[in-house]
Design a protein around this nucleic acid. Structure first.
Length: 590
RNA sequence: GCGCUCGUAGCUCAGUGGAUAGAGCUUCUGACUUCGGAUCAGAGGGCCGGGGGUUCGAAUCCCUCCGAGCGCGCCA
């Protein structure tokens, strides 16, 4: 009853498919011979690479799953299946019963050697698959209010969303990304930002005006004011109060969005579309959504306001206001209209990435989607846990209003785009992480990303050296692959073979941090291979040298593909000025 | 009070219902007159928050308690 779905697991190789067939046929043969009696259908055959090498290339837990229905102890079931598995055969070198009833398979090494040919043939496409073909996904993320710069905290969602896009695309999905701009000029926050900017503007002109209560205190507001003075002089000072307020709201929005866009671009994140909340008002989509919710009986009037029945729709603890008594619509109404718009554009999978502090809003959004008759279950909300900002061990409050935020641009300048991205991607977004800015700077050269990048650079370096020395590097298809029998060679090949499954798993679980962990594993296998299996030493026979060089090239391809999914550079050589002790903020040369 | 999320090595974190729970950092000890040492080998470190349950098998699923973070507005 469980684990019937092998498609979500490890059958991404021709090899596992063939092995699955071997096992299935053995079970059927045992049944026909009357040695096994099954009730019901045969459970899916699950193969996984065992944690310990001694257990072989693939382990199968089928005997334990069949123990109950056959009424036999799992090892007995295993023995009766094993009897019908031909070994040694073309694929299986050896099969054995182990532990509580596993069937462990040791395969002939040829299948590993052929992975090199597959990598060479598919090249950039190695690791890609069609598992998510047919998905039309829209990933909406960051969506920071245009009331301040993109902060380090936004970096987590930015790196995650951008990587999910690449990941899902690699699995055959059609993906768009979107930044939702809360630019509705009648919103409370935008009024306040406009007033704060107007105030700074007048102060720049020498007028002693006081900042509004709770105004935005950040220096960036003063900088914007200076730019306006530089561009417009005192031309805006004479405007009537109402007109001036609106004008500054518009100016503030425009400037903040430009700033945000370039900060994200510097982080390697670009959106297919910036969707403006205001457009939903301009087209009447918000009013239409409200009217439809009313018509469907999910909205009612009380105390002069219009309410959405979220208690009924999603078990919320109270209903939520759609239209205030002052007749202004709330964000709930606008978001309902926005998500209906997403569906109307043909997307069948909506992925929203929000900060954990918005978790209370998930059920409200789904309620509003349902109230419009849209499929709320097709909207997934990923909640990134808090990034606790620290400075010298002391927590920092990241309030835009108080001006105490750390811009993402600063991080990029300090540690570079690749290291910054990796920092966020290496941990699951579901765990809270402490981010000490001083520590991040100091650790820049210890950042695990360099380990992965060095693996790539090291491969390239060896290949370059071979080329410089006039040593031929044969294509994998012509290399003497079967000479690669050293333990470290086989370990490395195994990692390269596992890569497509890792990509698929990371995509299925929307968990790119798995790839960040896996690239370390490949790096480790590479470095160990490098230590123990010299290629260019004179003592190495030509055919073995060729095979090893081909393996370096296969590895470089896989690491490059993996880093590309994470949006991280794969340098051909490391920039030593960024080595421990130095503090260059640039990325290693590509 | 109600709700959401999370408790794994000194620190930061992995871990697909499977076999002896793993990395990195830190600490200690070693390695090549090199295919670039941003490397490699080794050691130390754990009642997987506590207690029940389901299962052949639980860090993983369920219940409960303890602890932490966050949310609960006619703000977004």
């Amino acid at each position: 009853m469980t684990k019937l779905d092998t498609s979500r697991r490890w059958s991404d190789h021709v090899v596992t498919d063939r092995l699955t067939t071997v096992i299935r046929e053995a079970v059927l043969a045992a049944c026909q011979a009357g040695e096994l009696q099954l009730e019901g259908p045969l459970p899916a055959v699950v193969l996984e690479p065992p944690r310990r090498k001694q257990f072989g290339d693939y382990a199968c837990n089928l005997p334990m799953l069949l123990a109950r229905s056959t009424g036999l102890p799992a090892p007995d079931v295993a023995a009766r299946i094993l009897k019908w598995i031909p070994a040694p055969s073309g694929l299986v070198e050896r099969a054995e019963i182990a532990g509580p009833g596993f069937l462990n398979f040791h395969l002939r090494p040829d299948w590993l050697h052929d992975v090199m040919v597959e990598i060479e043939t598919k090249d950039e496409a190695y690791g890609s698959n069609r598992a998510h073909a047919g998905d039309r996904a829209l990933i909406e993320f960051v969506s920071a209010n245009p009331t301040g710069p993109i902060s380090v905290v936004n970096g987590r969602a930015a790196a995650l969303g951008d990587t999910l896009r690449r990941l899902l695309q690699a699995c055959g999905a059609e993906v768009s990304t979107e930044f939702y701009v809360n630019d509705a000029l009648n919103s409370t926050q935008m009024e306040l930002l406009g007033e704060s900017l107007a105030c700074r503007y007048l102060q720049e002109l020498g007028e002693p005006v006081a900042m509004p209560e709770n105004g935005y205190q950040g220096d960036y507001v003063i900088e914007m004011a200076r730019e306006i003075v530089a561009a417009e002089g005192d031309a805006l000072a004479g405007l009537a109060v109402g007109e001036r307020s609106l004008k500054f709201r518009q100016l503030a929005t425009e400037q903040m969005i430009n700033q945000q866009r370039s900060a994200l671009a510097a982080f390697g994140v670009e959106f297919d579309r910036w969707f403006f909340e205001s457009s939903l008002y301009d087209t009447g989509a918000v009013r239409q959504a409200i009217a439809d919710m009313k018509a469907r009986g999910y909205a009612y009037e009380k105390d002069g306001a219009l309410w959405l029945k979220t208690t009924v729709l999603s078990g919320d603890d109270q209903d939520r206001v759609l239209v205030r008594s002052n007749e202004k619509e709330t964000y709930v109404a606008a978001d309902a209209a926005y998500h209906r718009d997403k569906f109307s554009r043909g997307f069948n999978r909506l992925i929203n990435i929000w900060g954990a502090d918005h978790h209370g809003y998930v059920s409200r959004l789904k309620a509003s989607i349902a109230a419009l008759g849209c499929p709320a279950e097709r909207c997934e909300v990923l909640l990134t846990q808090m990034v606790l900002l620290m400075r010298d061990g002391e927590p920092v409050r990241g309030s835009k209003r108080a001006g105490d935020i750390i811009p993402l641009v600063d991080l990029v300048n300090e540690v570079g785009r690749s290291a910054g991205r990796f920092y966020f991607l290496m941990n699951s977004y579901e765990t809270t992480s402490a981010f000490d800015l001083e520590l991040a700077k100091r650790q820049s050269s210890e950042n695990p990303v360099y380990y992965a990048q060095y693996a790539h650079a090291r491969c390239c370096s060896v290949l370059q050296r071979a080329e410089d020395d006039g040593v031929a590097i044969p294509p994998a298809s012509e290399a003497a692959r079967s000479l690669l029998t050293h333990e470290k060679e086989l370990d490395l090949l195994r990692k390269l073979a596992d890569y497509p499954g890792e990509v698929r798993m990371a995509a299925d679980l929307l968990a790119p941090h798995r790839l960040a962990g896996f690239v370390r594993e490949i790096g480790q296998a590479l470095h160990q291979f490098y230590e123990e299996c010299p290629a260019l030493k004179v003592s190495v026979p030509d055919d073995l040298r060729g095979a090893r060089l081909a393996l370096f090239r296969s590895t470089a391809t896989v690491v490059r593909n993996l880093l590309a999914l994470l949006g991280i550079d794969a340098p051909t050589k490391m920039d030593r000025s960024a080595a421990p002790g130095a503090s260059s903020g640039d990325d290693a040369t590509a």
